[in-house]
Simulated scan of single mutants.
Amino acid sequence: MSDRKHRIAIVGTGGIANAHAQAVTSLPERASLVAAVDVDLDRAKEFAAKWDIPAVYPSLAELLAAGDVDLVHLCTPPSSHVPLAAECLAADVDVLVEKPPTLSLDELDSLLDAESKSAAQVVCVFQHRFGSGAVRLRQLAADGVLGRPLVALCNTTWFRDDAYFAVPWRGTFEVEGGGPTMGHGIHQFDLLLSILGPWQQVTAIAARQARPTKTEDVSMALVTFENGAVASVVNSLVSPRETSQLRFDYENATVELEHLYGYTNDDWTITPAPGTEAVAEAWSADLEDVPSGHTAQLAAVLDALTSGEPAPVPLVEARNTLELAAAIYASAFTGKPISRGELLQGTPYAHRMGGPGAPWSSTT
């Protein structure tokens, strides 16, 4: 690999931008922060001073015009992702976009179209795929060590109080894209999908149990997969004991993960089925300990950019995850099962995650 250092700019200097800055500064031999961009120039200057960033711009257009950047990290509110990513693509600059990458399937498809006309690519932040535990699980599953996948559980049970929803861009389909299904649980069920592969059909419910939001604060889904596995997915913002849990029951072992916002190897357990004790040895053999997080994903992205390969996770792959989110809303609000591929371009739940609106929207 080349030892060229990648020049990175962060656009949007709110809370999540610090995780991105930490990731870049954790890889000093491979990347450097060259610019910070924010419509609030004072906030951008404060962020730049904190992370020793040499240049500050009030707009992405001015950053791109300066021409001194290889990779843009988009850390802005979700509704701005598509237009800003399109600007980067038009300038042939690669872009790493925070979740959710777009607010709808139609938006994602429009960005795929823009990407097809550019020399650059859009990469989506789904950092839980990149911890060493998830990498090992995918490896053992692909090698057939675990046998067939049978049952999975995916729970994102978090807590956000009323004040959390006072931020203007939270709690609406128009600006945030949805509630915990889109903004919180999406990380866990993206990891689920990265392991179990294409989903087939979903039956779901959604509810507004307690929070002042126009979206759901809870959703629950039953998902079937092309490989025959079945899974339950819970996304909640009303759960005082916060946890993120995944469980995979294979023929030869149960593999479990419990963490909150990121995991290490210590957060995984493996329980072999009777007579398959060697599975545990296969799990632990020479297993390095790489925590999940932005640093792990950025390292993988830089590997790909350096070698000229497509970077993980590309838009086309992230579409599988975003389509499941859309299908959860469509099933919950229509009361019908939704199959993958059913939400065609221009139809209500492809155009907007909430479709015509949540059942309670007329009362808010």
Rank of each mutant, 00 (worst) to 15 (best):
D3T: 12
R4M: 12
R4A: 15
R7L: 13
I8H: 03
I8M: 06
A19H: 15
A19N: 15
H20F: 14
E29F: 08
S32K: 08
R43N: 10
R43L: 08
A55R: 15
A61V: 11
A66N: 13
V69Q: 13
D70S: 12
P83L: 12
A85N: 05
L108Y: 03
L108F: 02
A114Y: 03
E115M: 05
A134I: 10
R136N: 09
L140E: 07
L140P: 01
V151L: 14
T156G: 10
T156I: 00
A163L: 12
Y164A: 00
T172Q: 06
E174D: 15
V175D: 14
T181W: 03
L191N: 10
G197K: 10
P198Y: 03
W199D: 02
Q200M: 06
T203M: 09
A207K: 15
R208D: 05
T213W: 02
E216S: 11
G228F: 04
V230A: 14
R241W: 08
T243C: 06
V255L: 09
H259M: 06
Y261C: 01
I270R: 06
I270Y: 08
V279R: 08
A280P: 00
V290C: 03
P312G: 10
L315K: 05
V316Y: 04
E317Q: 13
E323F: 03
G335Y: 06
E342G: 08
L343F: 04
T347L: 06
M353F: 12
P356G: 14
W360L: 11
S361W: 09
S362R: 14
